[in-house]
Computed example of a mutant assay.
Amino acid sequence: MSDNPDARAVWQDFCQKLDTIGDLVRDAEFATETIDHAEGYRYLSRLARIALDMHVENADSDFPGFYAASHATAKIGADNPDNLYLNATISGERRYRISGEKGSVPILSFGSKANRYATDGTMASTGELDAADMQFAADGSFEIIASKTKANGNWLPLDDDSTMLLVRQTFLDRATEQPAKVTVEALDAPRTTPEPLTVRQLEQGLTKAAAFVEGTARTFMRWTRMLIEEQHNQLATVDQDMFQKAGGDPTIFYLHGYWELQPGEALVIDTKVPDCTFWNFQCDNVWFESLDYRNHRIHINAHGAKLNEDGTLTIVVAARDPGFGNWIDTAGHGHGTMLLRWTGAREHPVPNTKVIKIDE
C-alpha cells in the first residue's frame, strides 16, 4: 500500500485485480458448459458484493452490524437454501453483547470465526454456542456475551484472531417458521461514533475485498476438482477435516459429491435416514453455489420429503420429474456439485448412488 494513496488509483487497482481474478473462470478446465462460464463470472460478481459488504461497508469492529454474506443471490461454499446466515465483523480485543428474540426457527446457532478465506482458504472456529445450550427469558429474548474471558450466562468464546460472528438459522418450513431477531454491539469500544471514511481505509477495504474474492474462488475450485476425481456421482466424503477448517458447522456431517448426467439420465440416491435434528440435500453448480432455489426444486429436507415404506429415502437428480422418489431439478445444468447434510446425528450413513436412464 502507498504512503499517500490517491482515491482514483485505489479504485483502478481494485478493478485491475478483479479483471485478473476473472482468469480463474476462463481457465477452469471443469467449466465445460456455456452456463458454467456465465455463472462463473456472475459468481465472481457475487463474491465481490459479499466482500464489499464485509470489508468496506461493515469493516469497523467497534461498530458491528449483521449482514447476510450468503443468500438467494450471493452464495459461498454450498450455501444451505434452508439457512438464514448473518455475519458481523468483530475483533478478539473487544467484548460484545448479542441480543434478540428466538423466534420459532428450529435450529439457531452462534459462532465466532477467524476468517482467513483471503489467505489460506480457512475459516477456523474460535467459539460455538447452540440455542439448545442457551438460557432464554420467558418471552424468548436472550443475551450473549462474546469475549475471550468467560462470562456468566450465555457466553460465546472469542480468541485473539477472531474476526467474524456467524449466526446460522435453519428452517424446515420458511412459510410458517419465524426467524430470530438478532443485534450486536461492542461493549468496550473506545469511540462513540464511527470515523468518516478515509482514502487509507478505502484502500485497505478494497485490497481485502479483492483478496477475499480470489481466495474464496480458489478454495472452492479446489474442492470441485477434488470431488470430480474422488466423488464422481457419489456422496462419500466421510473425512470432515477440510469442511470444518473452511467454517463448517461442527454439529453437521457433510457428504459432498460431484454429479454429471447425460440427457435422459438421472442420479438415484438411496440412503437410510439417521436419528438427527435436521437433514437436507441440495444440488449446486461447479462453483459450489446452490442452484436457483427461488424458481426450481433443487433441495429437500424432512419437511417436504416422502420416505419409502421401510423408512429409507430416495432422491432422484434429473432434468425432469421421473415419477418416483424425491425429484431434484438440475435447473438447466448437466453437471455440478451436491451435498447431503446430517445435523446432530450420531450415525452418518453413506448413500448408495447409481445413474439410470429415465427416457427409456
Rank of each mutant, 00 (worst) to 15 (best):
I298H: 08
R320K: 14
G311C: 08
A266I: 07
T32R: 15
R225Q: 12
E289A: 13
M242K: 09
E214L: 09
I98Y: 01
N87F: 14
D284I: 00
D130F: 11
V268Q: 09
F136L: 10
N58L: 03
F30D: 14
F110P: 08
D120A: 06
T183F: 06
F136V: 05
G77K: 14
N280T: 00
D60H: 07
D329W: 03
H232A: 12
W155P: 11
T337Y: 00
F253L: 04
N280F: 00
N87R: 03
A28E: 13
V316H: 08
M338Y: 02
I328L: 15
Y85G: 07
P179T: 03
M226N: 10
R297V: 08
A246K: 07
Q204E: 11
L166V: 15
Y67M: 09
D13T: 15
L44N: 11
L86C: 04
P64C: 04
D62W: 12
K306M: 03
P64L: 06
L313S: 08
P274A: 05
I50V: 15
P5W: 05
H256S: 09
T330H: 03
E260I: 01
E214F: 06
R320V: 14
N87I: 01
G22Y: 03
L172G: 06
W155N: 11
N285L: 03
W279V: 00
W11K: 13
H303N: 13
T224D: 05
S147E: 09
E214H: 12
F110A: 09
A266K: 08
G100Q: 07
I90N: 14
D241I: 02
K272W: 00
L227N: 02
F220M: 02
Q204C: 05
E347H: 10
L18E: 02
T193W: 05
L206S: 05
A69P: 14
A318K: 02
L339W: 03
A118N: 10
R168V: 08
A151L: 08
E265S: 04
L267S: 10
A114F: 01
I328E: 02
L52I: 15
A9Y: 00
S70P: 01
D36W: 06
A69S: 14
D161W: 05
N152A: 15
I328R: 07
P81K: 09
E29W: 13
L172N: 11
L235S: 09
P157G: 10
M338E: 03
D120M: 02
A118G: 08
A74M: 13
L47Q: 08
R297W: 00
E39L: 15
V25T: 07
R94D: 01
Q16H: 12
G334F: 01
W155E: 10
Q204V: 01
S125H: 10
V199R: 07
T73E: 11
K245F: 02
K245L: 13
R174A: 15
E214A: 15
I90Q: 04
Y117L: 09
T330M: 11
P196M: 06
I228F: 04
D161F: 06
G323T: 08
L47V: 09
G325Y: 01
P64S: 09
G77L: 09
D27C: 06
L172Q: 14
G248V: 12
G121V: 06
A146E: 11
Y254G: 04
D19R: 13
H335G: 04
A186T: 07
A28M: 11
E93I: 02
M123T: 10
I269Q: 02
I358M: 11
G257M: 06
P179A: 10
A28D: 14
V213H: 05
Q178H: 04
W259F: 07
